[in-house]
Design a binder for these strands. Structure first.
Lengths: 201, 201
DNA sequence: TGCATTTCTGCACCACATGCAATTCGTGCG
DNA sequence: CGCACGAATTGCATGTGGTGCAGAAATGCA
């Protein structure tokens, strides 16, 4: 029962995101005003702000969805698995912000996260929020193994290692294919987390 | 040879920070304008912006200094020590942003980091910058033991664990003394990093 | 078609932030 | 001591992000 209203809403939302994406590429982020984006999407400036609360939000249209997926995945794994692999799998589905290296949109995001302070702050905020959400989920999934503080610390270590590695990989891997990047990232994270899963060589 | 000019500059800088601190407490962050702070410090609004580029900066007047100290400490330790304890000591001197739990100013900062999105982004940005700076320093200090990616991942894990633990401790430890908080924080971080330093129990 | 409700829009408004030119103020020199 | 140079301060204009509000338009429903 998708009403006309709902369809239209989804349509203008996409138009806004697409217009923002295009204009950011053409003119740069700082040089593009929200009014420009709204005009390009055929909508008033005021309306653009009802769809996306801030200019930065136009760059992260679907982040909440991803975190929710990761938390769900982690909670389903629950007890029938070791926590670290479960985390790995959960986070693979939730590569937000710095960790997100796939697709064209992501490339633009990564570039802007480095250049624009406001976007950088926005992305880091999302990452931190995701981190605490996943930490809580981990504690709920393995209540007797991890206290809230321990869970938070473990997820913090994991996310910290992952995003640091992702940033380093992104910096040094200009011409790589998507698959190669993913492999390098996974290898680096696995390497950093080796002490948790295996014996030190 | 501290000229009158230098003295005055340092004095108004302090007045700005103090006025901001006081007004933020009295009226709240969002309700205080930079113009208010400037007026309270006896200076024009325009001048306030030459001392601090953004409103958020008024809350973190000395962060750069701390990072520099931590990097220096890490580089001096260089080869004559194990990296993890060196990191621990270096980071103890550089408890920025979320990790910073000591003193009145810090309490205000922690509260605002949780409440105000803009401040939150600002603090996280500083933390991330510090993280990469320390990662680079670690790689330079132990070149054959850690590649740039490995160093970044290790520091990322460390900082991630530390700030996650700090946030959890701050959340749950309302009536603790400063010493108790420090102990709880150190214990949590040590616990999270145990796999790197000792055998798993 | 006609009514109720949601959505869009224009308008006024405020605060953050920056650039520029005029002015004031500290500093060093003759 | 006074003067000239450079640095800091200031006011002013401007642009942009973001919000509240009230009326107009579009949509769902009978």
């Amino acid at each position: 029962m998708t009403g006309l209203r709902e369809q239209k809403r989804e349509r203008t939302r996409r138009q806004l995101v697409d217009a923002a994406d295009r204009l950011f590429r053409e003119r740069g982020y700082a040089e593009t005003t929200v009014a420009d984006i709204a005009a390009a999407a055929g909508v008033s400036t005021r309306t653009a702000f009802t769809y996306f609360a801030t200019k930065d939000d136009l760059l992260f249209p679907d982040a909440d969805e991803r975190v929710r997926l990761a938390v769900d995945a982690l909670e389903q794994r629950a007890g029938d698995d070791e926590p670290i692999p479960a985390l790995l799998r959960a986070l693979q589905g939730a590569d937000i912000a710095v960790t997100d290296l796939i697709g064209d949109r992501a490339a633009l995001r990564v570039a802007l996260v480095e250049r624009e302070p406001s976007v950088r702050g926005h992305a880091l905020r999302r990452l931190a929020d995701a981190q605490t959400a996943i930490g809580d989920a981990l504690h709920r999934a393995y209540p007797d193994r991890y206290s809230p503080v321990q869970a938070a610390a473990l997820v913090g270590a994991f996310v910290g290692a992952a995003s640091a590695a992702a940033a380093a990989v992104a910096r040094e891997a200009e011409g790589m294919t998507e698959a190669q990047r993913h492999a390098a990232l996974t290898a680096a994270v696995g390497d950093a987390l080796a002490p948790w899963t295996t014996e030190r060589t």
